[in-house]
Lab assay of single mutants.
Amino acid sequence: MFYPNSPQTSPQLTQIPYGQQYAMMQRQIQQPYHPFATTEPQARLYPYHYQGPIQQEQGGFITQQSTAASPQYVQMRVTPVDQSIMSGYPNQTANGSSSSSFNYNIHPQQQQQQQQQQQQLRHHAMPVGSVPLQDDRYRKQLIVNYLAPDVTSTDLHELFSRFGELDGARIIYDKQTNMSKGYGFVYFCHAEDAKEAVERMSGYEFHGKWLKVGYSTNPLNIVPSNSSPYVHAGSRGAAG
């Protein structure tokens, strides 16, 4: 039997160049792979992502010199942007860049009308829970959420009447099932009393439920100042 490094198959040491006398086997001759043993700084910083320098080929596509990437890492192929796409944008300079302001050559009167329309939209648009300043009635009506099913309009009136005089209180019921929808409205005579009720009743436990109280901004629920107070009856038909 002959071994790869046996004296019968191995040459004389004098015939082997210096430095390879003890590297006779194939696994010894093959050098191990060192990912950080390279002179390129990109490979030292990113050993798993770097795959060699990027070269520009004919046709405008950018390719990489090395083989496919590892399945664990996804390499994105980048193509140059066609400058003709950006030619339609206004205020574009000769080098292809555009300024931040756009001039669509709008007539001054049209621009003024658009600004007025935007101001009107901001004036009428009102986020949930906010209180408008032009109508004091919005500051007097509250919406009470997360009410228990057994709470009546009379219970709601008695709960909030300790903060001040009320114009009314009612629970909203479903017309088909005649069941409470879980929320109601309270109408105060003074805005200061309503503000105190919002601050003190939010998070209050009532009939096993934690109440959420806020201003009601729905104009359909506003009680006119010259109208008669609501009837605080315990029956659902009268309260709904």
Rank of each mutant, 00 (worst) to 15 (best):
G184K: 00
D167H: 00
S98G: 07
Q92G: 03
H34F: 15
P219S: 03
G214V: 05
L166R: 06
Q26W: 00
P90V: 11
R77C: 14
G129N: 07
D193P: 09
G19F: 13
E192V: 14
A43R: 08
S130N: 09
Q114V: 13
P127T: 07
Q64V: 12
Q109M: 14
Q116F: 01
Q28G: 03
L45D: 00
V223I: 10
T177Y: 10
Q141T: 01
M24E: 15
P47W: 05
G96W: 02
Q134E: 12
S10D: 08
E57Y: 10
E158I: 13
F206R: 04
N178A: 02
Q83S: 06
Q141S: 00
E205A: 10
V213G: 13
A125Q: 07
F188T: 13
G182E: 00
N221S: 09
N221H: 12
R162P: 12
A197L: 02
A233P: 13
I62W: 15
M86H: 04
P17F: 15
E199V: 06
E158T: 05
G96Y: 15
Q120N: 00
Y48H: 05
R122V: 11
H232A: 09
A68F: 01
F36A: 09
V213I: 06
P7R: 05
G168N: 01
Y48V: 10
T152D: 09
V151S: 04
Y104I: 02
K209L: 01
F206N: 01
G88S: 06
K175G: 02
Q20K: 06
V78P: 07
Q55M: 14
G96V: 04
K175L: 08
Q51N: 07
P219Y: 05
D167V: 04
W210H: 12
H124A: 11
K209V: 05
S180F: 08
I106W: 09
T217G: 05
P224S: 10
I62P: 03
L13N: 05
P32K: 05
R200H: 03
S161E: 01
S101Y: 10
L121H: 07
V144D: 12
V144K: 00
G240C: 08
G203E: 01
P4R: 09
Q21M: 15
P47L: 14
M86I: 11
K209S: 03
N178E: 13
L142N: 00
G182Q: 14
P229G: 13
E165Y: 13
H232Y: 09
N103T: 12
A194P: 10
H123M: 15
S98M: 00
Q111D: 10
G203P: 10
A43D: 09
A148T: 04
Q114E: 04
Q12W: 08
D82L: 12
R77S: 14
E196W: 00
Q72W: 14
P127D: 03
N105S: 07
Q119A: 04
S130P: 12
F185I: 08
E199Q: 15
V198Q: 02
I29D: 14
Q111W: 12
A169M: 15
G59L: 06
Q119T: 02
A68K: 00
H49L: 06
M86F: 12
I143Y: 01
G19K: 05
Y230K: 09
A94M: 02
Q120D: 05
Y48P: 04
Q42Y: 05
H34Y: 14
M201W: 11
V223L: 04
G164H: 09
Y230R: 13
R77G: 06
P41D: 13
V198S: 05
M24Y: 00
Y46D: 01
S225H: 00
Q65V: 03
G208R: 06
G52L: 14
S87G: 07
I54D: 03
K140C: 00
G60K: 03
T39S: 04
N221M: 06
Y204W: 00
Y50M: 00
G164Q: 11
S180C: 03
K212I: 03
L45H: 02
Y73I: 09
N145L: 02
Q65S: 06
K175R: 12
Q118A: 08
Q119Y: 08
I54Q: 00
G164V: 05
P35I: 08
V198L: 07
Q115P: 11
